[in-house]
Nucleic acid binder design. Structure first.
Lengths: 132, 132
DNA sequence: CGGTATCCCGGTAGATACTG
DNA sequence: CAGTATCTACCGGGATACCG
């Protein structure tokens, strides 16, 4: 299958938007955590120290909206809110695992490529041409 | 030790950054195209009408820096620049395919979830509580 | 505890113009 | 053709403060 469809690339707007919603800065960390077990809000904050409340709230809301995370409010005092992964969310695990496995396998090669590229740049700052 | 953090999360900063560099807004479309065949700059522009020169340039530079795309300058008149996928770049294809397959398979379910969520919101704008 | 409301800043993307 | 240079608009995201 060489995908000989010249007309439409497989990356259309809805797909792109979906990936943006689900693979954004904090989503992976959140999903990773919720795949292990349901979590309370502040539990997630502690698990992902670099995230702010605002961003965490936004991430959870987005994930909830996309049906991959579920929010449950228990009207205790004070309220307890539990987030858990949905069945749909669990289906994301495999693709993400594949992606992370790729990242793991090639991270060092990529870091090498970056250094090589950055070195080149230092040499030829005026115009981007090949070095003799 | 409130939260026993046995194994650090698999999503650390370098991984996250790598994915940001390689899965950003236009990268997938570019990689998709370059997986089929090498392309000239304006050929890519035409293939991805929504992208601006600036963003395309930035995307290509980033991908080049990360070693997944290669830039070749032919000193004809006027210059011809060809971009092609590298071996490292080709290894990205599988993970991305898995991801796109997931998106394809679940897009409709996710759109349904979004509609349901958005409806709920209209009803309960004051506080986010569950409906009976 | 689990958020929302504000302010603010830096980076990203668009439009436009110019160049080798 | 294949970019670079600006200039501006916008938004995500952090810091902070407050509320049910």
């Amino acid at each position: 299958m060489d995908t000989a469809d010249p007309a439409g690339p497989r990356i259309d707007a809805p797909h792109r938007e979906l990936l943006d919603q689900v693979l954004d800065k904090w989503s992976l960390a959140v999903l990773d955590r919720l795949c292990e077990r349901p979590c309370r809000f502040n539990e997630l904050r502690r698990a992902i120290p670099a995230v702010t409340q605002k961003s965490l709230t936004a991430t959870l809301r987005r994930l909830e909206r996309n049906g991959v995370v579920e929010r449950e409010v228990t009207a205790t005092r004070p309220v307890a809110v539990t987030y858990r992964i949905t069945p749909l969310g669990k289906t994301l695990r495999h693709p993400v695992d594949v992606l992370l496995a790729w990242a793991d396998a090639h991270l060092s090669a990529i870091e090498r490529a970056r250094r090589a590229f950055d070195e080149q740049e230092e040499g030829s700052l005026r115009t981007r041409s090949r070095l003799p």
